[in-house]
Design a protein around this nucleic acid. Structure first.
Lengths: 245, 245
DNA sequence: ACTATCCAAATAATCGATTATCTGTCAAGG
DNA sequence: CCTTGACAGATAATCGATTATTTGGATAGT
């Protein structure tokens, strides 16, 4: 008997349930704190995609020394948000149509696969977590006029999708999905402040979640796939419209 | 005891993957070189799975300073070979039955998916690369008595699998597959010095490759899936036999 | 003009030393 | 005995300074 499934990616230090996590992250190392701040800065678009990260400026901006700065940046590489090249330093990962399409495709494949596995293996606690995440998400307004509500909604949305697949018992797969969600969220944070009129996203989430808890594999997986696909299409349109590429 | 009869910059036989593999030529940083050496040390089993990595000892062993050491280790995290925890340092990722099974399952899913995409999208150059990788692999003997042949074979084997899926046009997916191969190879390097009698691995590779070039999607994908699955089964048996877990 | 070569400023990488944190041990108090 | 807390040694994290590499621009030769 193996003590615990401590797979390669098992620990994943980061998120405790967002609601209850207060103090524990207050006293991480500087490197960790930086990683969080930088991650948020990148996903939110504060740090422009593709831009070079000047270590000296960053050092001054964040008021830290080089060691923890490099430490923090190194971690974002595993998140796919930062790229690195020897002697040339770090830069924020670029966004592109091709990248968006790959992210969408892979999410369709992997997230759906993970959901299927969750439905196959998840226990009652997983079901409960799914319903809770759904409820919290659907009870949260997204008001384009108040940015803090957008951030809050994004957080809960992310949490919902991760909870949905959290029962799959496959830490590496979860790591991949988390990474893809990071990349995906960056597009949405930059380009979407509201959903296109013809979608009822709350209902989509509900259908997926209820199907999942009812173990209706084909239905729920299909809903999730469509959900991801639609988001991809929307994002692609916005990307094209705003003529970034 | 660390007599420094060293060569921190020791020429080391580990030259770049043969002819046209990667671009890491002589002009790497210490951090990069360390990452390579450590990666090899972990995959080959020289550094025991699950063991803690004492920074001070490692620093002396490799005759480097802390900064590049951390740098190198940080990169192995993205490879899934090293885990990290704040204020507790780094450790070599554990191996376990659960982990092996996940790696195998995910390889079946992702690598097969990537192969399908490669067959759909790959161009003539991709076909050529596949045939070359196949030829070089099949022309290389694997002699359990001479470890260097094993290493060489592993390298070419890895190269073959990566080439096979290199036409898929999906960099993130390729990254995932590379990572999974790393994890998988570690099990094989530790547990398999020869294939079980009832397999003709060369032929398996040939069938996959030829089917791929002929764009026989279903056939080739099926062969690859079985190939991966068999390897997983073999490894699991060895793992159980040698009673590691 | 056009390229090649060589400097100097900018930037990245590394080092040695210092500071913060953890971990085991041992003694005092319950 | 068992727990608690303080100490010391081990280990990780961070800093400031130094060294190496890259890059842009000026200069000389064709």
């Amino acid at each position: 008997m193996v003590p615990d499934d401590d797979g390669a990616f098992a620990p994943t230090t980061e998120d405790a349930p967002s609601s209850s996590g207060f103090l524990d992250d207050g006293k991480n190392t500087i490197g960790s704190q930086l990683a969080s701040r930088l991650r948020e800065a990148i996903i939110s678009g504060e740090l422009q995609a593709g831009s070079k990260i000047n270590l000296d400026k960053a050092r001054k901006t964040f008021n830290v020394s080089l060691s923890p700065l490099r430490e923090g940046l190194a971690r974002l590489i595993s998140d796919g948000l930062v790229e690195f090249e020897d002697n040339r330093g770090y830069r924020v990962s670029s966004i592109s149509l091709a990248n968006l399409e790959e992210v969408t495709t892979l999410r369709e494949e992997f997230e759906v696969f993970a959901l299927r596995e969750s439905m196959r293996l998840g226990d009652v606690e997983w079901e409960g977590n799914v319903m809770r995440a759904l409820h919290r998400l659907n009870r949260t307004e997204r008001d384009a006029a108040r940015p803090e509500t957008l951030e809050r909604w994004e957080e809960l949305h992310r949490e919902f999708h991760l909870t949905l697949i959290s029962g799959c018992g496959k830490p590496i797969l979860l790591h991949f999905c988390r990474l893809l969600l990071n990349l995906n969220d960056r597009y949405r944070r930059v380009f979407l402040t509201r959903t296109s009129g013809d979608r009822n996203v709350s209902q989509e989430h509900s259908e997926i979640a209820q199907g999942a808890v009812a173990r209706d594999l084909d239905y729920s997986c299909d809903m999730l796939r469509q959900h991801i696909h639609r988001t991809g299409t929307n994002l692609r349109n916005h990307l094209a419209t705003k003529g970034i590429l």
